[in-house]
């Protein structure tokens, strides 16, 4: 045995997964509706992740435990799927998530300018969240708005043919 220099901390409180998240009856029935669509529960994993994400901001550990219980999977199964898909958030994001399309057609028509404008306006870099947790700014790949470029998606809403004025209008009118 080698020298004892690094120690595993004694488990004064064994680390278990937290209690699963709980949702309102309404959300539960929405989840049931999704589960009913498939012959195999696991198929509902993405729709359910979106719901957990909507309700809790991101897939937090209680949310993950909830999904695992609900789908009869292991938490690691949730992890492997969640981290594959770029729309599934495993870390907290801002209340408003601005996702500027950076792929070719948008880029040709000035996506960079839009990103820079948002970045300056909010005082954050791409990949960051404002201090108040209101805005996150990301660059994403083609969102299917090439004919109406440049564009960003603000949470789920498409804002197309963007100009700096339109960006101002979109962001300033948010509650």
């Amino acid at each position: 045995m080698g020298e004892v220099l690094v120690k595993i901390q004694p488990p004064d409180h064994p680390v278990h997964m937290p209690e699963p998240a709980a949702f309102s009856a309404e959300v539960e029935s929405e989840i049931d509706r999704h589960l009913a669509k498939y012959p195999v529960k696991r198929s509902a994993i993405l729709p359910l992740m979106f719901i957990v994400q909507r309700e809790r901001g991101y897939l937090d550990p209680p949310g993950v435990q909830y999904l695992a219980n609900r789908l009869q999977l292991r938490v690691t199964d949730i992890w492997e799927v969640a981290t594959f898909y770029s729309m599934i958030q495993t870390k907290p994001v801002g209340k408003y998530h601005i996702q500027v399309c950076k792929t070719l057609s948008c880029k040709l028509l000035g996506a960079d300018k839009i990103t820079k404008y948002c970045s300056d306006k909010l005082g954050i870099k791409v990949g960051e969240t404002t201090g108040d947790g209101r805005f996150s700014l990301s660059e994403v790949e083609c969102l299917g708005s090439c004919g109406t470029a440049p564009m960003f998606q603000l949470n789920f809403d498409y804002h197309e043919n963007l100009t700096t004025e339109k960006v101002d209008r979109a962001l300033d009118s948010l509650p």
Partner: peptide, 10 residues
């Protein structure tokens, strides 16, 4: 016929 959602993966 049911709808199903992807989650960001080309």
């Amino acid at each position: 016929i049911y709808t199903h959602t992807g989650a960001g993966a080309y």
